[in-house]
Write a protein that binds this DNA or RNA. Structure first.
Lengths: 165, 165
DNA sequence: TCAAGATTGATGCAGGTGCATCGAGTGGAG
DNA sequence: CTCCACTCGATGCACCTGCATCAATCTTGA
């Protein structure tokens, strides 16, 4: 008798949920213990710093980060409150605006990468050979394109990187 | 020149974050669209239904589900509010209590498994051969035991299953 | 040109989460 | 027995999230 989700598939599902929540938790804790803000801030700062002239429309940021619109809006609020970014009106489309990373923002992003990369190494890199990491990536990618489209740059720039939710 | 977290490791990290959040989202949405409560409720109901005489100490539930104490406490509140479980005082240890699943709780858990298992099949099973699912599980397991201990039953009962955060 | 519809971004509200802390109760050392 | 340290579970607070909805603006097409 064939079950609908095979025991193998279900077991993979369980591990996917458990392991990522555990690993994410570890990484977030490491960042927090080093006195840094949450990963989402890093992701946003990185996207901004990579953008031409360090600015993006909120709508772009939202697409890059795969988070909902209201979430982007409030994340930007917080970045602006902390002086890490600033809003600038958009001349051509007066509904919109630009968000520009500040020097403080760029600097924080760089400092965070130190702690962040160390955490990735500690919680992922050190547990997996490069070959296994590649295998894992490949298997995960196969799960990626079910409901909606996938956003993944053809070749990820992995020296300073932007993952997460 | 060797980077600290290899590009391979970082890439695996990115995918782990992105793919699980996407897949989890899909599954949660499917459940919600079918009119069911969040996955955490299912996990709790399943643990309770599996326990001898359908009851557990909150502390046990907490350990099974790997969620913080206050989170367990409030989850139980909600289950009780909905008539899916009930609290019973613990004679032997008057600090504590037992949480017992009700008939409505057992029934909901069973109904949820229908939608849940279909979602697992749709978003995981159908994307991966059983052999690949096993490989994926194996690789994920290697990431599992970094900070704290892992709780994984030696052989997972995968006909009705309990994953998640 | 102008009305209908789509897009951009903000926000009020309800609920969930993490953190710190509390009170009650237990158990072990002296 | 008494005290002290610990475990169990609840809760006030701040913040974060999802949802629905809004106002402003842009675009389309008749």
């Amino acid at each position: 008798m064939k079950r609908k989700p095979s025991t193998e598939a279900t077991s993979a599902w369980i591990r996917l949920m458990r392991v990522q929540s555990r690993v994410l938790d570890c990484v977030e804790q490491d960042l927090k213990k080093a006195g840094f803000p949450p990963l989402a801030w890093y992701d946003a700062l990185l996207e901004l710093s990579r953008a031409p002239s360090g600015e993006l429309r909120p709508v772009e940021l939202e697409r890059q980060m795969l988070i909902p619109q209201y979430s982007t809006s409030r994340l930007i609020d917080r970045l602006v409150d902390e002086g890490l970014a600033s809003r600038r009106e958009c001349k051509i489309d007066k509904r919109g605006q630009f968000v520009e990373i500040t020097e403080a923002g760029r600097e924080l992003q760089k400092r965070m990468w130190g702690a962040y990369s160390a955490a990735i190494e500690k919680h992922v890199g050190s547990k997996l050979s490069d070959a296994d990491a590649v295998k894992l990536s490949g298997l995960l990618d196969r799960l990626g394109c079910s409901c909606g489209e996938m956003k993944l740059p053809p070749a990820v720039n992995v020296n300073e990187t932007s993952p997460s939710r």
